[in-house]
Nucleic acid binder design. Structure first.
Length: 568
DNA sequence: GTGTAAATAT
DNA sequence: CATATTTACA
């Protein structure tokens, strides 16, 4: 059944046509198994004694892709012998024996899996997995001729695995789905072999208290039989809903070693889902360390569900990190989804994914929202152009921008910062805060009243947030680094990002974080009617929070609030 | 394509 | 129940 072209053979309808050898003395059950397998389009050869079986495989090593042998309490020697002799063929042992030691022995002898009889149809159906496994783990050198095409096929499928393949796969799936749905895999007993390396979303396996960066597959929950096995890499066949292309390999790796190994990789074309299968770098290495950027990986490897439904991106700290980096590199006014995606160079990650992420991590912060609003209204104008003009990507990827303000007291803010924006600085600020703190160089930036961001947010009503509290705060602190950075970092642990933000943005970061929290805090307590309420309480809360955070730079700008001047 | 808000899934 | 993601829209 294997499409026979030469060189790169692609197995059409892959599992179909796989040759299976059955060694079973128990005629009845063996015959039954045989017929079942044949129904599944496998080519089956049944042998009743190891002699014949061994002879068969010895004659032509390539004759079979998988072997299914029975082991009985009475006479298991033959089977054991077969196991020993047929190391080259993935062998599944089926048996009535529930003896752990026997099972172990079989496995030790090389059995790919030990299945209790009666063997569920699912197991049989997915028997091909062993072949694929073998194909990918045989170690490129000794890839038998029969395995080669399989590997090629799988790789091929994984590569494109886009629309095209899904069709075929889908067909098969559909027909299987039905069956799966009704047939409960009878888990024979607690000793039953590990079933299917289920594309199980590698729920993170905590690794030495460290971060876990493993493949995280996102699979739809439509798994017929959501069985969970933690076996990350195993030789087992079971029911996989996604036959064919989803080989999810989860590995427990130490973060540090991350570099050494390739991460998930995915098919680039597909926008909805990708497969991740990486092992020994067999898969097309879609990764490329990007300049500057740390190696990119899409941690959210995803079980490529046949149904190109939707996959969820697992924003692991790592991924997020990349995201942040991209954003900061782009600079605030260029940090748009599409560009971020590009920069991230994470395969499979879509613009949408990024957009969402961006949204969340920004929405999260009212500040950011304000910024956005602001940007939207202001940037398009000349102010924007001016900035754009200075654009100089060479500078560490940042786009230098006019310094608008310095935080009067913040130590870290003295350094020249290249990205300071006149964020949501309320007009009043200019008359109060600026003056007070002597921000001489503050650019004249008076956005038209209508463009004030917070007018849109009842919660952040101007009356409430009127510069006194927030605007002022912000006016005080320079956004020394891309705003995103701060905000984004605020959401995640920044432990590893210090490098980047060390000199200039650290303080800012804290400030923003503090403010962010304060806002959150306040908003959580809707004591007063939002439209006009927040004012006093919010100011207090914010200030308090700021203080608590050690931010002591509260300029004398808040008319309604007693401006705490400094603290420690 | 972008930015949001609403819907949903977790 | 809150958060995180996706989907739908402007």
């Amino acid at each position: 059944m294997a499409g026979s072209a030469d060189g790169f053979v692609v197995w059409k309808d892959f599992p179909r046509g796989l040759r299976i050898l059955i060694l079973d003395k128990d005629a009845p059950s063996a015959v039954e198994t045989k017929s079942k397998l044949e129904e599944m389009d496998y080519i089956v050869s049944l042998y009743h004694n190891e002699e014949d079986a061994l002879e068969a495989i010895s004659k032509e090593a390539e004759s079979f892709h998988v072997a299914v042998v029975e082991v009985t309490t009475i006479d298991s020697c033959g089977s054991f012998r077969f196991l020993e002799m047929a190391k080259d063929i993935p062998t599944i042992v089926v048996s009535d024996v529930h003896c752990l030691s026997t099972m172990m022995k079989c496995i030790a002898l090389g059995a790919a899996e030990f299945l209790q009889k009666p063997v569920a149809e699912d197991k049989l159906r997915n028997i091909w997995q062993h072949v694929v496994h073998k194909a990918f783990n045989a170690g490129g050198n000794e890839l038998s001729k029969s395995l080669k095409p399989i590997k090629d096929t799988v790789v091929s499928m994984l590569k494109k695995h886009s629309e095209t393949d899904e069709h075929k796969i889908k067909e098969e799936e559909s027909e299987k789905d039905d069956k799966y749905g009704s047939e409960k895999t009878m888990t024979n007993d607690r000793f039953s072999a590990p079933s299917t390396p289920q594309p199980e979303q590698g729920k993170r396996f905590p690794t030495n208290g460290e971060f876990q960066e493993m493949t995280h597959c996102s699979i739809a929950k439509e798994l017929p039989q959501p069985r969970k096995h933690s076996s990350s890499v195993s030789k087992s066949v079971g029911n996989t809903c996604d036959n064919s292309v989803s080989i999810a390999i989860s590995k427990d790796v130490l973060p540090s070693k991350a570099e050494a190994e390739e991460e998930v990789n995915s098919v680039d074309g597909s926008k909805t889902d990708e497969c991740s299968a990486v092992k020994e770098g067999f898969l097309p290495s879609h990764f490329h360390s990007v300049d500057g950027l740390p190696k990119n990986r899409l941690s959210h490897s995803d079980g490529a569900r046949n149904n190109r439904k939707k996959m969820k991106v697992d924003w692991t700290p790592e991924l997020h990190r990349q995201f942040v980096q991209a954003v900061e590199q782009l600079g605030i006014d260029q940090a748009i989804p599409s560009k971020i995606v590009e920069l991230m160079k994470v395969e499979g990650l879509t613009r949408h994914n990024v957009a969402s992420h961006l949204q969340v991590h920004t929405k999260h912060s009212l500040l950011r929202r304000k910024y956005r609003m602001h940007r939207r209204h202001v940037l398009p104008k000349d102010a924007d152009r001016r900035w754009q003009a200075d654009k100089d990507p060479t500078q560490r990827g940042y786009i230098p921008r006019p310094v608008l303000a310095y935080p009067p007291n913040h130590p870290k803010c003295g350094a020249p910062t290249n990205q300071i924006y006149p964020f949501w600085v309320h007009p009043n600020y200019h008359s109060h805060g600026v003056q007070a703190s002597g921000q001489a160089g503050y650019t004249r930036w008076h956005p038209p009243p209508q463009s004030w961001p917070w007018k849109t947010y009842p919660v952040v009503h101007a009356d409430a947030w009127g510069c006194p509290v927030f605007a002022t705060q912000y006016g005080q602190y320079p956004m020394s680094s891309p705003l995103q950075r701060s905000l984004l970092y605020g959401d995640f642990d920044t432990s590893g990002d210090r490098l980047e933000m060390s000199q200039e943005s650290y303080g800012v970061h804290q400030v923003e974080e503090a403010i962010d929290r304060a806002i959150k805090d306040v908003m959580r307590k809707p004591r007063l009617p939002l439209p006009l309420g927040l004012k006093s309480p919010s100011a207090e809360a914010v200030l308090a929070e700021l203080h608590r955070q050690g931010i002591c730079t509260i300029p004398p700008s808040a008319p309604s609030t007693d401006p705490p001047h400094s603290c420690g």
